[in-house]
Design a protein around this nucleic acid. Structure first.
Lengths: 216, 216
DNA sequence: ACCTGAACACCGTTCAAGT
DNA sequence: ACCTGAACACCGTTCAAGT
């Protein structure tokens, strides 16, 4: 049922998902879908739920931060495999209550708390981690141009920049020269910045992250 | 011309911007807009450009990281004032070339480079900062419910969580108890994590951030 | 129980026709 | 130079009607 929708969206992008088109892909007359599903939003919720279920929430790891790192990378991988998912999760039009998303939030919060971080540090750490996983990945998806696919676009873009944005032009050239990468992806760099910071604050002064209520 | 569009979107959300409605708001018959603008995408680009122009790119500050912090907070403020803007910037459907966005990217890159950070650290630091500013803010916009406006939604949601997600329920309660905040916003917490990390790596080993090509 | 056709209220966009 | 009406190819959704 929903698998067809995922297939359609995976190859055509999110804007190619319409009830009529989905119906055609299933060999059925489009309005027949309303017998199996309440409305289009329910389909969107469903495919996001399915995708998020692919994330490995309980990787084997020696410490809480290594486990956090592994599950964050797993989530990042999954979201890159379905580039439309981030946008759907973060799209501010509706608040979606998606089971797999709740399990995922709970997993992060639980790991931070059980690691012995203070309530304040858990509170802020959760925001930093979750927003990085979803936000960075969406950023990445939006800024990644298949350079091999349209090299002239990049070339003319670089020329248009002219001398006005020399630093930006240089940055783009660094992206193009991706042969010399050493495996530390952009995603993991900022992730480690966050994890390092949490570890440091947590060990230095376990109850002074500043900010939110102490909670329970 | 575009100001009308911003006004419309600011109060009705992005989905209330249609050529027909925008025409009506201007007392004109909708297709007349095509005399002043190529298509709807040009309108979207235009309003994003106008909004991003409000960001203060050159705040007075004693050091590069304080300047970075100030302009990031300025951007965050602007984006919260126009909650639809983040989604438009990060929406992966089209790559938008928006002058104010280019100036903004250039500003971050320039500041990092001129601070003496290595090419590698600038490269990664830029990704971390830009994705945090846009990604976190979009995350924030999507997850912020006007608790005062619909307290029952939160209440029933908390009940539905039941015992399955105790940590998540606790986290939401912390959000509701916002009276004891001390001014360190969620946005600034992760921002400082990133800036602290960049400062530390930059001073410890100025040329070993690991990763990207050394560039120029 | 499941599907279909016709219909409604919307979209973005084009284009010949008006002033 | 600017606007309009009619039209085209789409949307999501409803509902009476079919099997």
């Amino acid at each position: 049922v929903l698998r067809a929708a995922i297939g359609l969206v995976d190859e055509g992008g999110i804007e190619s998902l319409s009830m009529r088109r989905l119906g055609r892909a299933l060999g059925v007359e489009a309005m027949a879908l309303y017998n199996h599903v309440a409305n289009k939003d329910e389909i969107l919720d469903g495919i996001v739920d399915l995708v998020l279920s692919e994330v490995d929430l309980n990787p084997e790891a020696a410490s809480w931060d290594e486990a956090m790192r592994a599950s964050a990378i797993s989530a990042h991988d999954v979201l890159l495999r379905h580039p439309w998912a981030c946008g759907l999760i973060l799209s501010p039009t509706t608040i979606r209550v998606i089971p797999a998303r709740l399990r995922y939030m709970e997993s992060i919060l639980g790991r931070l708390t059980e690691a012995g971080l203070s309530a304040a540090l858990t509170y802020h750490g959760y925001h930093a981690l979750d927003s990085h996983i979803l936000g960075f990945t969406l950023w990445e998806v939006g800024h990644t141009i298949d350079a091999g696919n349209q090299p002239d676009f990049v070339a003319t873009f670089l020329r248009d920049l002219g001398g006005d944005q020399p630093y930006l032009a240089e940055h783009i050239r660094q992206h193009l020269d991706s042969s010399r990468r050493d495996g530390v992806s952009e995603f993991e760099f900022a992730l480690d910045l966050i994890l390092d910071g949490l570890r440091r604050i947590g060990s230095e002064s376990p109850n002074s992250a500043g900010g939110p209520p102490e909670g329970a």
